[in-house]
């Protein structure tokens, strides 16, 4: 045990000097500790605290990258504040999401949601996608607000996130959306995704209502094809 602790100390020291090209085997004790603390909450919390300390210190981008990967596996609410500060940083936003997206606590979702107000452009695209990937129903209102964003990538990411969340509220927001033209196809795709979720839940009338709106001749062929298939699937379901 003492031997393991010494190896972990040494690995954490190596992590502070870690950079691209460094020997990654020096970090193996951290990898081993991630596995061995699986059923030891106290030891895992201690490991997490050490990693947070590295994240908050002046270390290379690669070292922070490494810590975020580890926190994706073992991070808890305790990691959220440190990770949240990185969301607005161009170089580190993605790896912060890499961890936050996988941390199940409500605080992780809150941090991502709060970041929507502070980031824009590609970083906002990333945050929206992480909320969508989490299936965060509590974020529907904030995500829906981005549907009208002038940046088509942001509007598309918002639509995609709602298509991942697929709640009735998400479907309503998508139905009411008036995005810029470049984001329209992903809005429709997400509406189709919501209809599929309704079908899976046995809410055939709700699903059919979406399909009926999209089957009309004014829609592109691919959308009509999807809506036709959807209506057919509704009819195939036994009541």
């Amino acid at each position: 045990m003492a031997d393991d602790a010494a190896k972990l100390d040494s690995a954490c020291e190596a992590l502070k000097a870690y950079n691209w090209g460094a020997d990654k085997n020096a970090l193996q004790p951290i990898e081993d500790a991630i596995v061995s603390t699986s059923s030891d909450a106290a030891a895992r919390a201690a490991l997490e605290a050490r990693l947070i300390a590295v994240l908050e210190s002046d270390v290379s981008r690669d070292a922070k990258d490494y810590v975020c990967r580890a926190l994706a596996v073992i991070g808890s609410t305790a990691s959220v504040p440190s990770l949240a500060t990185l969301l607005a940083k161009e170089e580190l936003s993605h790896m912060a999401r890499f961890a936050l997206e996988r941390i199940p606590s409500v605080q992780a979702a809150d941090a991502l949601r709060a970041a929507l107000a502070t980031v824009s452009g590609d970083l906002k695209v990333g945050v929206l996608s992480s909320l969508g990937n989490r299936g965060d129903a509590a974020s529907v209102t904030q995500i829906a607000a981005a549907l009208g964003d002038a940046d088509s990538k942001v509007a598309a990411a918002a639509a995609a996130a709602l298509g991942s969340i697929r709640t009735p509220e998400a479907a309503k927001a998508l139905a009411a959306a008036k995005p810029i033209a470049a984001a329209m196809s992903i809005v429709i795709d997400s509406r189709l995704a919501c209809a599929e979720a309704f079908l899976a839940q046995g809410k055939m009338e709700d699903a059919r209502a979406i399909y009926m709106l999209l089957v009309g001749e004014s829609n592109p062929k691919l959308i009509r094809l999807a809506a036709t298939r959807g209506i057919q699937t509704c009819l195939e379901q036994k009541r």
Partner: peptide, 19 residues
């Protein structure tokens, strides 16, 4: 199994996303 659940996916680098 929350621990394994974290390995179902990973965040994609902006501006790429999956839906």
């Amino acid at each position: 199994d929350e621990e394994a659940g974290r390995m179902v996916d990973r965040a994609r680098r902006q501006p790429w996303f999956l839906s």
